[in-house]
């Protein structure tokens, strides 16, 4: 299992992997926003957390379709399916590796982009914390989409379409937790706890469903 984790990590960090592209895409999306809404700093600092969250959501969907498709193309998926270790664990570890390679860099890059959006320290800290808690959920949901679309020749776009509606709760609670932290009256903890609950929930549901879909889509 640890071997699988490090192998996937190596694959995404090496040339052609998703890490750099994900972070670059994240930066580009966030950098485009001021061109769209204008350079008004007050406005930017107000919508900043939401923009960072949307950018992170889109960026973490970016490489997800390759999660199982790359394994299928070179035949590795067959061997992964055949092992004594439960497929559930294999999927879970693959998700964890994918998150560590693509989700974690987004979290680390977010403070820098927060400065661009004229956010204060509290808002940047809260955004980083919610991204840290919320992006794994997106990866776990995305694994279901990736597993469902694994056999499709052009599954990439379909994965995003299937996954985005399911990822909406994560976005809602992530953003509302950040705003709760900035605006005084609303408490920060309830939405944050729900965000973590969603992540834990999908950490169970995602691998179960993805494993089922992979078993059934084998041909």
């Amino acid at each position: 299992m640890i071997a699988l984790f490090f192998r996937d990590l190596k694959l995404s960090v090496r040339a052609g992997g998703g890490t750099m592209i994900g972070v670059l895409f994240f930066m580009t999306v966030v950098a485009v926003v001021p061109f769209g809404v204008g350079p008004d700093l007050n406005l930017l600092s107000r919508i900043g957390p939401a923009m960072l969250w949307i950018g992170a959501l889109l960026a973490s969907l970016l490489g997800l379709d390759r999660l199982f498709q790359a394994e299928r193309e070179d035949g590795s998926l067959d061997l992964l399916l055949m092992q004594e270790t439960p497929l559930l664990m294999t999927v879970f570890v693959k998700c964890a590796a994918h998150w560590a390679a693509t989700g974690l860099p987004l979290v680390i890059a977010s403070p820098l982009l927060g400065l661009f959006m004229n956010m204060n320290e509290l808002a940047i800290g809260a955004t980083m914390l919610t991204l840290l808690a919320g992006t794994p959920a997106i990866t776990f949901i995305g694994a279901v989409g990736a597993a469902v679309a694994v056999a499709l020749p052009r599954g990439g776009l379909l994965v995003s379409i299937l996954v985005l509606p399911l990822a909406i709760p994560v976005l809602i609670f992530g953003v509302s937790a950040v705003y709760a932290a900035i605006e005084d009256p609303a408490p920060f903890l309830p939405p944050f706890m729900i965000l973590m609950a969603i992540t834990l929930f999908f950490a169970v549901i995602g691998p179960v469903a993805a494993a089922a879909a992979l078993r059934h889509s084998a041909d």
């Binding site: 193309e73 070179d74 035949g75």
Partner: peptide
Amino acid sequence: LGHRNAMKQEL
């Protein structure tokens, strides 16, 4: 051992 080698080009 299938038609495909189940090895990663990058590694």
